[in-house]
Structure formats: C-alpha cells, structure tokens
C-alpha cells in the first residue's frame, strides 16, 4: 500500500471573517446573551418582591434611571432581532406541515409567527395598561 500523502490542514483562526453569513449567525446567537441578561433582571425583580416592600421599591426606582432605560431599549432591539431571525429559521425546525395536502410554504410559517408575536405583544400591552 502506498503511504498516505502529506496533506495540509488550514487553520480555523478568524473563521468568522470569511463569510458574512458567519457574522450574521454570530450576531443572532450573540443577542441571546441580552435575552438572558433581561431574564436575570426580571428575576432580580421577583427576588426583591419576595424580600419585601423596601427592596421592591428600590428595584422599581432603578427602573426609572437612565441606565435602566438604555438597558431596556438595547434589550428591546436585541429581542426584536433575535425573534426576527429565529422566526426566519423556524420553518427549518418544524416537522413537514401540510395544508389540504400541499406543503405549507416557509414564508407562511414566518408570517404566522410574526402575527402571533404581534398579537401576543398587543394583548400584553392592553392588559398592562389596564391593570398597572
């Protein structure tokens, strides 16, 4: 048997520089850090609620600060981007769907997700305005 040829394996350093799709992917995954940060922030609020009124008022006071406003705006942008890109890839993750015997096109699934997102946000907003 002839010996295996000497091959050259290229390194993977700075692989994200090689294609815009890689950078879009990293951005999509990166926004989930913000999603996690926001979840922790909400959790902190819950903990304050359990600790008592002073703690909760302190947390609510912090909500009004400029730092908190900037954080919330950044979180909203990150959430919107994350949700949008996630809805885009959602058709790839669903089992094959059929409607009247025909496969459901990807853009229908994407649009349905956008609608569901919009309606859920609206309902939440109305409820919040009503009760807060």
């Amino acid at each position: 048997m002839t010996p295996a040829p000497k091959t050259y394996v290229r390194p993977m350093n700075r692989w994200w520089m090689r294609h815009p799709a890689y950078r879009r992917y990293l951005l999509r995954e990166g926004t989930s850090v913000m999603v996690a940060a926001y979840a922790l922030f909400l959790l902190a609020g819950m903990v304050c609620l359990v600790l008592g009124e002073t703690a909760f008022n302190l947390w609510r006071g912090f909500l009004q600060s400029p730092v908190s406003v900037i954080f919330h705006l950044a979180a909203l942008a990150a959430f919107a981007f994350h949700a949008w890109t996630w809805f885009k890839v959602m058709p790839l993750t669903t089992p094959p769907l059929r409607f009247r015997g025909r496969p459901v096109p990807d853009r229908m699934i994407f649009r349905a997700a956008l609608w569901a997102w919009g309606i859920a946000s609206l309902v939440l907003l109305v409820l919040a305005m009503r009760f807060l």
């Binding site: 294609h19 799709a21 890689y22 992917y25 890839v89 790839l92 993750t93 669903t94 089992p95």
Partner: peptide
C-alpha cells in the same frame, strides 16, 4: 449543528441539509 444555515444556501442541488438536520432534532 447550530443552524448557521450556509450549507443550504450553497447547495447546488437545493438539498437543504439544514432542514434535514433540524427536523431530525425533533
């Protein structure tokens, strides 16, 4: 697979491997 998704974009035969893989996650 972490759904980078470029495989399906470059496939000259529109096999859509990203879809095949992610459906199998279910």
């Amino acid at each position: 697979c972490t759904l980078v998704g470029l495989c399906s974009e470059v496939c000259p035969k529109h096999v859509d491997p990203a879809r095949a893989i992610n459906r199998n996650k279910i």
